[in-house]
Amino acid sequence: MSSNLLKLPDNIEPLTDADEEIFLVYTALNQKPLDPTGPDGFHGLGHVDSRQDTLSIRFELTAPSQPTSSGAAESKSASRSRKGKSARKTRGEETSHVIEIELAQDKTALRSRKGDTGSVLWRASIAFAQVILQQHCFPPSNPLVDKDLLRESHVLELGAGTGLLSIALSACAKSYTATDIAPLLPLIRKNVGLNFAGWMQNTKPSEGSPGSNISVEELDWETLLSLPPTRRSLYYPKPPEPNAEWDLILIVDCIYHPSLLPALVETIETVSTAGKTWALVIVELRQEDVVREFLERWLNKETWRLFRMDGFLDLPYIVWACQKYA
């Protein structure tokens, strides 16, 4: 089923040289003007607003014939939020759809817990969710992900942080499992509960209702790496369906610190199934040497086909699609 989950262009060639890929993407990045709308420009850390305890994230989805002025998701403080979803129809056809998500942050942990970057929301997650939601609501001729196949897929997210993607995208998939280190799980669970009434880790809404297919589980990459290979399959979470395997792995803005790269690459390798699992890696282009090392480590596995998916996110973000083949 998942062999065609990601829609690769007919003429696309797999990546084989990390240095060449880094040269191409950073040359393009250096030619792009600085974005004045971000707090730090496109070379910044990329968080949305680490000063707020709560954010309201608004996704405006618009039919191609009715473009909006912004064309992108917006964020604002919860004091001005409107929870829920709304839609406008013209002559019986839906031309726009709005999704709003309330999201708590732990701004104290960002400063007090060493290495904790997942306790606040990062812009890459909003940008990626906007693309998937827009294509899900108004399917284009060249989607990133096949909508019908995604609906039957089990999705695993690594480094889920605040849990935004599980809340935004769970309705698009059969099941969605958000994972992160243990200290972040309470925040993810809090946010899922804020947006889906009655959701708790062990007490979920009735089957088929919004949010009922979300699970939040611990998956520490460094813990997995420390285990003998024969024991690793006992550690990471499995899809909720018996004998199922992961169809799609999401890794969104997780490549930022070189010390985590060996564990991250090994985790992606371990949780994936040859001939079935696709991985989508969304990277904000920060330190060139860190991104290069990630690509080198992954290509050295020699068990993946990697493709750059242009045209879905603007720089400084890059989308790599990858399938395990051996």
Score class of each variant (00 low, 15 high):
Val252Arg: 01
Arg286Gly: 06
Phe294Cys: 10
Lys276Glu: 14
Pro239Glu: 10
Pro242Asp: 09
Ala73Cys: 09
Gln135Met: 00
Arg151Ile: 07
Ile181Phe: 15
Ile255His: 11
Gly161Ser: 02
Arg88Gln: 12
Trp278Lys: 09
Asp40Glu: 15
Trp122Ile: 00
Thr230Ala: 13
Trp246Val: 05
Ile214Thr: 00
Ser79Leu: 11
Thr267Asn: 08
Ala321Asn: 08
Thr95Cys: 07
Ser272Arg: 13
Leu299Gln: 10
Pro262Ile: 02
Asp49Phe: 02
Val216Phe: 14
Pro9Gln: 01
Glu207Tyr: 08
Ile282Asn: 08
Ile214Met: 06
Pro262Ala: 05
Pro237Leu: 08
Leu110Phe: 02
Ser81Met: 12
Ser170His: 07
Ile101Asp: 02
Ser65Gly: 10
Asn195Met: 02
Met309Tyr: 05
Leu133Arg: 03
Asn4Cys: 12
Val155Pro: 06
Ile318Cys: 13
Leu45Pro: 00
Asn142Phe: 11
Ser112Thr: 12
Cys137Met: 06
His97Pro: 06
Leu224Cys: 03
Lys114Asn: 12
Arg232Cys: 07
Gln105Glu: 09
Glu102Met: 11
Glu288Pro: 05
Arg91Phe: 08
His43Ser: 13
Ala197Asn: 14
Gly311Gln: 11
Ser3Asn: 05
Gln135Val: 02
Leu185Met: 07
Glu207Cys: 12
Arg232Pro: 07
Thr62Leu: 06
Leu194Trp: 11
Glu152Asn: 06
Pro205Ala: 05
Pro228Met: 09
Val283Ala: 15
Ser206Ala: 15
Ala129Lys: 00
Gly311Ile: 09
Leu165Asn: 07
Ser125Asp: 05
Leu5Gln: 04
Tyr325Pro: 09
Gly84Phe: 11
Leu133Gln: 04
Gly71Pro: 08
His47Cys: 09
